[in-house]
Amino acid sequence: MTKSYEEIPLTPISDSPSTMNMTGLWRAFRPVVDISRCKKCTLCWKFCPDGAITLVDGVPVIDLKYCKGCGICAQECSAECIVMVPEGAE
C-alpha cells in the first residue's frame, strides 16, 4: 500500500548503535594477551582504531565480537605481551 508523504520520514536516519555489526567476524588473526606481563602502559587501548579494547585497572580487555584483528595492539605494546595467532589455532 502506498504511504502518504506524512508517513515517510523526511530523511533516512540511522538511530541504532553500530554494536549491531559483529565486525569480529572479519578477523583472520586473534590477539592474545599475556596479562601477567602487562605493564599497564595503555598503548593498546590508545591505538585501537575500533575501540574494541576497554581498560580494567589499566589491563586491556579485548572485545572479540568487534576486534577486526588488525594487530596494531600487538605492534605497539610496550611489554610485547600481545601476540597475534591465526584464527582456528590454539
Binding site: S18, T23, P49, G51, L55, G69, G71
Partner: peptide, 21 residues
C-alpha cells in the same frame, strides 16, 4: 584506576565498517 594520557570517554561505538587498521 590507571591514568590515561588522553580522555578516557569514548564517543564512538565499536562495529564501524572501516577496514582493519
Amino acid at each position: 584506576m590507571t591514568k590515561t594520557t588522553i580522555p578516557e570517554e569514548e564517543f564512538t561505538y565499536p562495529g564501524s565498517t572501516g577496514c582493519p587498521g
